[in-house]
């Protein structure tokens, strides 16, 4: 980190505070807008002659609608469960693959590394049409497992890549000491590499969780019944409807759907940065 000693306040203002303030304002304005929209009663919301910045009779009706008339709580639960499970699967597969590729030498490891890398560049939008029929053949349509098993395909390549980089930064000597003391390879991995690799694992985990929480296309195509939907799909398909859409509830749902991940991040953002830093150094 740079200290910038001897900088005048005026210069600081121009090169630092003002730009930073603008960045923060632009980044946050849509959230402010979600909030203000969600507490406006309909007659204020759909009135072009009033200032949209002012709420004169704030109401929670849109928030209540969300819980009374839709299955929002259920969608939140589904999303949480699907994101957690697919993150767990991704981390499991990603740690093993990352360890294997960064530490063990075996014929074809380079090929595996490259093929994992290539798959991380095959986007879901390229796969969803045929994948739908694979999911159908596995009898997984409209089941959370359709998402729990497919999300890792988006997550594993990135996690494996990130962890591979991170594991490389852990000195080999530590592992070898443990091996000399009689630990098996697996023990060396679980006792040495896992604890030391925690920041990297955490980064990969946060990244995976976010991506699963946000995923839309697979959830849109593979899930149909209202009680199985995730938040993004539920909000879009069940609130963007009717004669005027339920804009108040849409924004309330958008805000509520954002909070859990935002919460996770606010705790782990430094970890995320250091995890990434580790991966980059490796």
């Amino acid at each position: 980190m740079q200290a910038y000693v001897g900088e005048t306040f005026f210069k600081r203002l121009i090169v630092f505070y003002i730009p930073l303030f603008l960045f923060v304002a632009v980044m946050l304005f849509p959230f402010y807008w979600m909030f203000i929209t969600s507490i406006k009663p309909d007659f204020e919301l759909y009135n072009v002659r009033r200032s949209p910045f002012i709420v004169s009779q704030a109401t929670l009706e849109h928030w209540f609608y969300l819980f009374k008339e839709t299955m929002f709580a259920r969608w939140a639960w589904n999303t949480l469960w699907i994101a957690t499970a697919s993150t767990a699967i991704s981390l499991f597969a990603g740690i093993l693959a990352g360890y294997s590729l960064s530490r063990l030498r075996f014929p074809g490891s380079a090929t595996f590394g490259i093929s994992i890398f290539i798959t991380y560049l095959v986007p879901p939008t390229l796969l969803f049409i045929p994948l739908a029929s694979v999911i159908a053949n596995l009898r997984l349509l409209d089941s959370p497992w359709a998402l729990i098993l497919t999300y890792p395909t988006i997550l594993v390549p990135f996690s494996a890549w990130l962890l591979m980089g991170y594991f490389k930064t852990i000195p080999r000597e530590l592992e070898e000491c443990a091996r000399i003391d009689g630990a098996t390879r697996l023990q060396a991995m679980t006792k040495i590499i896992l604890p030391l690799g925690m920041p990297g694992i955490l980064s990969a985990g946060i990244f995976s969780f976010t991506l699963s929480w946000n995923e839309f296309l697979y959830a849109l195509v593979f899930i149909s019944s209202p009680q199985q939907k995730t938040i993004p799909v539920g909000v879009v398909s069940e609130l963007m409807k009717g004669d005027v859409f339920f804009w108040g509830s849409l924004m309330a749902g958008a805000l509520l759907g954002s909070i859990p991940v935002a919460f996770v991040y606010s705790f782990f953002v430094e970890n995320y940065v250091s995890g990434m830093t580790g991966a980059v150094k490796g």
């Binding site: 946000n214 879009v236 924004m251 759907g257 954002s258």
Partner: peptide, 16 residues
Amino acid sequence: TVLLPFIVPTVLSGLA
């Protein structure tokens, strides 16, 4: 805070 746009579901912020 500045990380928020990246972590919230795109469709939801897209709605805003």
